[in-house]
Design a protein around this nucleic acid. Sequence first.
DNA 1: CGGGGGATGTGCT
DNA 2: GCACATCCCCCGA
Length: 220
Amino acid sequence: MIATPDRTPLPRAFFDRPVLEVAPDLLGRLLVRTTPEGPITLRLTEVEAYDGQNDPGSHAYRGRTPRNDVMFGPPGHVYVYFTYGMWHCMNLVCGPEGRASGVLLRAGEVIEGADLARKRRLSARHDKELAKGPARLATALDVDRALDGTDACATGETTGERGETPLRILTGTPVHSDQVRNGPRTGVSGDGAVHPWRYWIADDPTVSPYRAHVARRRSS
DNA sequence: CGGGGGATGTGCT
DNA sequence: GCACATCCCCCGA
């Protein structure tokens, strides 16, 4: 018997904690993307922590820019960046405000709206690949820079008459600590690679394969 | 399921 | 220039 996930919104205070506490605690939570065709709901299975201070792997490491501005703002908001000339990835900003820490959402299990997600992810061989990897996750949920800065903890009073916001984070079913694994972050090079700040659910089929960062060879 | 190679724009150095 | 919080296609097993 599988317990019904708790659809209570996570309060902003959840994110107003050190990022290394928030990151593993996000596993098993639900991310709801509201689209005109209906909701897509994702159960988070893999995340990575990025600290705004003394973390060379963080986009905020060299200070505030127009691109990473949202990271320096209040917790519970979404930071979306564009990378490799083609892809988007999304993070949830953690506290305290101004520290510019965030959690990269690396993978999840689509538990509702898989048909909608598949329209964006035609190359997925299985449903478990719909959001297996950070850019795939953003693609499946139709997330791009237009949603940068979205408040994932918005309450009814701030979201307008219909109480809908494009992205919301719900309580879901938190994962017991003995099911949480951690290891080096994926795709991070140099000094930032030493931190074992990637967290995932043990044996979950939607977790992305680990690949150590490899510098791309020069093209002709 | 997995490796190899190419594709793309932006922000740094 | 070059690296980049990456993925897809193609092929072989």
